[in-house]
Design a protein around this nucleic acid. Structure first.
Lengths: 225, 225
DNA sequence: GGATGTGAACGACTTCACAGCG
DNA sequence: CGCTGTGAAGTCGTTCACATCC
């Protein structure tokens, strides 16, 4: 009975050293934010229990997560904030600038454009698209609204790799396809729909209705956690 | 370090209550949306594999999830869309209206106010608050902007139970405390911060920077899933 | 002493596989 | 038949506990 190994992860020898759980990555951003706060407050070193306290998780969890970054901690001392910040940035892939386009020039797009957190972490919004002829040519926060037809050209010219989708659900799949055709490599989708993308394009979805319904469920259950 | 006890819910013990996994609840909203689409397309019955196909998950997963709703499925036939929709609504706690207040009258608030998905699922935004004196008194989408001082009175008067937090990170914790003091029972937080709420108040957080960083990580990894 | 790193236990979630029913 | 419901097995993630090191 020869058992074939599932070819789950064809290890590209570039960066993958350790197993790296997907769940940990979800916390990396939070570690990063808190570490940056501690760091600019002058803290040079931080312990797993301090960090866990700040995020509301256990110290063991923090150590397991940070272990994925290599052996940065010093027993009896803690983790050097600076080093962990740098390692997290690198692991997350935000040790460089990402160019981002936004499709759908509504209120959500405006909110995203003015959101400071993006710039701070190296995300630069370089173009804005909308199908509404009335909006094309307008300027919103220094960005001109382009027609979706120009997407391939603009994406190529700006070198954008990520697309934020803030369009109505009915047209979201079509717009996503256009983004993919234009060469985008990742989509952050806000439309309430399950998008289908080719396997070489990454997808993260933020579904506001789902989140609100989740909240209603929790409240109905009584209390939190 | 008090641990939450498993609350046996001594409510009306009509159905044989099952364990109910937290992960399943996260998919309930998606099932609901797809079932509503199938239903309004005239589909009376749907199989676990059809639903799984639509959401991109396995049929076994769908059956396990729907089993939490009671024995709604008919072997050889499938699930009656109507019944499953009703059961999901009830389980999620959205078989009634929820009154919602929004704190922070910025672009994100505007986007949320105009978002149709909320009303459709029975969430009614009944008040809007902002600390900016220049905004107080203005009307946005038929809602007057109130001063945060009036929160207790307005929450009581409107019977709001949920609060959406779209304020800057620096003031988010303070505003959340005010919401809690005003008697709110659940908070949907958009500020990039780990909120601390008393245990009787539920919390769901949507952190846009975290989501974007997640996307960057996936793209850097190459491809999706 | 104080805090890390990590096997091992534990628990949660998913997939498998199949009995059973209309 | 086709499709559900569900134990069993498998996978993934978290917590525990402790050897280890500065």
């Amino acid at each position: 009975m020869s058992k074939a190994d599932p070819p789950s992860e064809p290890r590209s020898g570039t960066d993958g050293e350790r197993p790296l759980s997907r769940a940990s990555v979800g916390r990396f951003s939070l570690y990063l934010r808190h570490l940056e706060q501690f760091h600019s407050a002058g803290t040079k070193t931080i312990s797993s229990s301090q960090l866990g306290e700040a995020l509301g998780i256990t110290d063991a969890q923090v150590r397991k997560d940070l272990a994925y970054l290599g052996n940065l901690g010093h027993p009896g001392v803690g983790y050097p904030t600076q080093d962990v910040i740098a390692a997290l940035r690198r692991k997350l892939g935000i040790d460089r600038e990402w160019r981002v386009v936004v499709v759908g020039a509504g209120n959500l797009a405006r909110a995203l454009l003015r959101y400071r957190g993006f710039q701070q972490q190296g995300f630069r919004i370089v173009a804005l698209f909308d199908a509404d002829a009335g909006k094309i040519g307008q300027r919103i926060d220094d960005l001109e609204v382009h027609s979706p037809d120009t997407m391939p050209a603009v994406v190529a010219a700006t070198g954008a790799e990520l697309g934020l989708l803030t369009v109505p659900a009915e047209v979201a799949q079509g717009v996503a396809d256009t983004l993919v055709a234009a060469g985008i490599r990742g989509v952050l989708n806000f439309a309430p729909i399950v998008l289908r993308l080719p396997p070489h394009v990454s997808l993260v979805s933020v579904d506001l209705t789902v989140q609100l319904e989740q909240l209603a469920f929790l409240v109905q259950l009584g209390g939190n956690e």
